[in-house]
Nucleic acid binder design. Structure first.
Lengths: 110, 110
DNA sequence: GTTGATCGCTACGAAAACCGTAGCATTGGA
DNA sequence: TCCAATGCTACGGTTTTCGTAGCGATCAAC
């Protein structure tokens, strides 16, 4: 477990400038990160609820990601499960319109 | 090299539904995918130009990603280097505002 | 016509990331 | 006390990524 999670202001994989966008690109370039956020766009989910929602992600990676996302201030664990912080919800909002682009993409590559 | 690149309409890692958004989440969840697109947002770049721009990405992975992105109809290799397709440029446009969010994020986690 | 510089790209062994399965400790209700 | 559900950890095996070296092609200069 040698991973150091990307945060703005410090060097990340592939960039030493500390530019926030580079930290973001590194963060979302990890498997499951966006998917986890995505599955939490509606109601909060428990650890095991997330496992199912993500199609059987292994608990070790899920736990790693949840720690990462909490440390990055994008997720919180509250009474009824994991849920995005306001900041995380803002990021999520930026990704929501991608469903529409993805549909278009689907038509193009078909 | 057992990777099968995610495309809308077929099963991807973590989802068997074929929903386009799932293919997208799988695609961008691979290392370097977004970064490569990002570095091509301005002028086209050659293979080696991309290598440098991405801070020394190994050529094997770069080549893998370039093939993936070309097969996904997001990238093209033209005379003066790799450049996004119109579709890829559209996707890129959705990610551009993330710089602003990332700045906000930087302030929040600091 | 050979040398040198660049191009896109490949081979391959090592390291890192990820996975699947099993199970632990805790909590709360029956 | 027993049962179910919670968050999470351990650990060995597989997949993905990395780092270095180098190949074949192209083109310009000498």
């Amino acid at each position: 477990m040698k991973q150091k999670i990307p945060k703005p202001g410090s060097a990340v994989r592939g960039s030493t400038t500390g530019r926030p966008i580079m930290a973001l690109l590194d963060l979302v370039g990890r498997r499951w990160v966006l998917r986890i956020l995505w599955e939490l766009r509606g109601a909060p989910l428990t650890f095991r609820g997330l496992q199912e929602a993500c199609g059987g992600i292994s608990p070790s990676v899920l736990n790693q990601r949840l720690s990462d996302l909490r440390e990055a201030a994008l997720l919180d664990l509250v009474d009824d499960g994991y849920t995005p912080t306001p900041l995380g919800r803002e990021l999520l909002a930026q990704f929501t319109p991608l469903t529409i682009w993805a549909e278009k993409w689907a038509k193009a590559v078909r």
